[in-house]
């Protein structure tokens, strides 16, 4: 089993006919992902790596029973594409683009909450379930199948951590890159009930970073859904008041430091490793109870 991206997922690619979208579509197919089509307005009737291309999401739902989307459309077109996916009734919408205006994110999020759609991102590498596939841009080869749920606010750091776990023989059920923006579709805490309900997930690994309060809320969610958990949080030496690359990684003088987040997580019984290299041992200890 796995969460959100499962054998029942029938995904379409929005913005798949551009250069980057086409390349990523090819790699998602190689990773075994069940893609059932692509949607690019004006390109309906053509093909993309053997997938039928439709003009609208509604058409893809009707013709190939799509229930999820991964979107590579540029930031300026994200709102339109995501709203179309929500209105067409998709259950999962993955928004890869970075630099999406925050009010666009908020509008999509409100629409998703009304319809019960799960929105991953924006500014995310996406979601991967080893053995099932991936909706996103992460390298499939560093993720092994296993029993750990994984949540990350960062992309490339998640790949490094996954590679370290793989070398140590530890795999994941599903990894969700939640997105690096200060406001995202679904917070880390909101994924906890999904992992808690998945019989194959035996524990949770969190790759966090400075800024915001997601790690703190995740700790509270783990209080309601107890399971073994470990974390690594980047940004111990980041200066306060500076945006570290993406806007979510901004520590104020009062809030969002690694020390504060570590304190809250550890009080909830979550082990916080000081470096990625120490994670495999911390995970083994946590799983052993």
């Amino acid at each position: 089993m796995s969460i959100l991206l499962t054998p029942a997922t029938r995904a379409i690619v929005q913005g798949g006919t551009g250069r980057i979208g086409a390349r990523q579509t090819e790699w998602m197919l190689k990773a075994g992902t069940r893609l059932v089509g692509a949607v690019t307005p004006g390109k309906g009737g053509t093909e993309l790596h053997g997938l039928p291309v439709f003009d609208s999401v509604a058409e893809a739902v009707e013709r190939v029973q799509a229930n999820a989307s991964v979107s590579f459309v540029p930031a300026a077109y994200v709102r339109g594409a995501a709203m179309e996916a929500v209105q067409a009734g998709l259950r999962l919408v993955v928004v890869i683009a970075e630099h999406v205006p925050v009010y666009d994110t908020l509008e999509i999020r409100e629409a998703c909450r009304e319809s019960g759609t799960v929105m991953i991102g924006p500014n995310t590498p996406g979601i991967i379930t080893p053995g099932v596939g991936k909706l996103g841009i992460m390298p499939a080869n560093v993720f092994s199948r296993g029993h750990l749920g994984m949540l990350s606010r960062s992309g490339t750091l998640a790949y490094e951590v996954a590679g370290i776990l793989q070398a140590a023989g530890i795999g994941v059920t599903t990894m969700v890159g939640v997105g690096g923006d200060p406001i995202i579709g679904t917070d880390m805490a909101e994924y906890v009930p999904y992992f808690a309900a998945d019989p194959e997930t035996k524990g949770l690994l969190v790759v966090g970073e400075i800024g915001g309060t997601q790690e703190e809320r995740l700790a509270a969610a783990l209080g309601d859904h107890p399971m073994p958990a470990c974390a690594y949080i980047a940004g111990r030496t980041a200066p306060a008041g500076k945006r570290m690359g993406h806007a979510g990684a901004l520590m104020s003088a009062h809030q969002g430091s690694v020390a504060q987040k570590t304190g809250v997580l550890e009080r909830t019984g979550i082990r916080v490793a000081e470096s990625p290299r120490l994670l495999p041992a911390a995970i083994r200890e946590a799983l052993a109870g």
Binding site: S152, L157, G180, E209, A234, T237, G245
Partner: peptide, 10 residues
């Protein structure tokens, strides 16, 4: 990547 950059600093 911001996370990898911050981890590098740390």
């Amino acid at each position: 990547g911001a996370g990898l950059g911050m981890a590098s600093m740390d």
